[in-house]
């Protein structure tokens, strides 16, 4: 149990050599590898952190953008809704107006039709009344009234105004044919004689007088000399009444139509 100094020296050398070898093959490579790996991991971590921050920023931006879009979309929606409401109301109003207009037109037409119908009815009624009157006159004036008709005719002839009388006188004088006296029914002889005499007296001519029947005359006498005609008859009155009735109805209808449109 003693120290061999040669061995001690050899072991010191061995130990120093071992330190160098291990430093060369063990510590330095391992330490370097670990340091490099740590650096790389550190780099990756920082890189990942940076990317994460970037991604978070981007996400934040996107979120804001989306919110803005959402709000603007809402605004646009509101606007569109308001516009649609307005349009709907306007269209409704238009349709309501149109319907109202049509209704009024229809009402006008209805009123007009009613007025036309009423006018027609009035016209027909008037004519009917006149017809009945004519028929009644025709039925009740046969025979008995001849003398009165003759007298009436003579009286009227005497009261003839100057112009007519002059024309008639001229016509009687120049006439080629006979004077034509028309009555609804045939007059008896005395009545005919009175009428003939009156004509001769009044027109100062001996013109031949011819008698004819015409139902349209109804009650009265129509005298035609050449182209001149004088007539005193119920038919003339009735015709005038008919004309007046028509004129009255025609003039009344526009006024009424005007009243309804106002």
């Amino acid at each position: 149990m003693q120290i061999d100094w040669l061995t001690v020296a050899a072991q010191i050398v061995n130990f120093l050599v071992l330190i160098w070898l291990l430093q060369r093959f063990l510590y330095r490579p391992i330490t370097n590898a670990m340091a490099r790996r740590e650096a790389r991991i550190e780099e990756r971590l920082s890189d990942a952190k940076a990317r994460r921050r970037e991604a978070e920023d981007e996400a934040e931006d996107l979120r804001k953008e989306r919110e803005e879009l959402e709000s603007s979309r809402q605004e646009m929606l509101e606007e569109a809704r308001a516009e649609a409401d307005e349009l709907r109301q306007r269209l409704e109003q238009d349709i309501r107006d149109e319907v109202e207009q049509k209704r009024e037109n229809w009402q006008d037409m209805l009123l007009e039709e009613r007025a036309d119908f009423a006018r027609d009815m009035q016209r027909k009624a008037g004519h009917k009344v006149l017809d009945i009157a004519a028929r009644l006159l025709a039925e009740f004036t046969s025979g008995a009234l001849d003398d009165q008709i003759a007298q009436g005719f003579v009286a009227r002839l005497k009261e003839l105004d100057k112009d007519t009388r002059k024309k008639m006188t001229a016509a009687a004088r120049d006439a080629d044919g006979p004077a034509l006296v028309e009555t609804a029914t045939a007059l008896d002889t005395s009545a005919r004689r009175k009428i003939t005499r009156a004509i001769h007296e009044q027109f100062e001519t001996g013109i031949e007088v011819e008698y004819q029947e015409d139902e349209e005359v109804l009650l009265g006498v129509r005298l035609a000399v050449d182209e001149q005609t004088v007539e005193w008859s119920a038919a003339r009155h009735l015709n005038r009444l008919n004309r007046e009735l028509d004129a009255l109805l025609d003039s009344a209808s526009p006024v009424r139509r005007k009243e309804t449109t106002d």
């Binding site: 071992l18 490579p29 790996r37 790389r40």
Partner: peptide
């Protein structure tokens, strides 16, 4: 001592020759 040294150095050398940094 040499045996121990050789063992240590060889083992280190073999392993560190194929070091991975990944």
């Amino acid at each position: 001592t040499w045996v121990v040294m050789a063992l240590l150095v060889l083992l280190s050398w073999i392993i560190t020759a194929r070091l991975s940094e990944g």
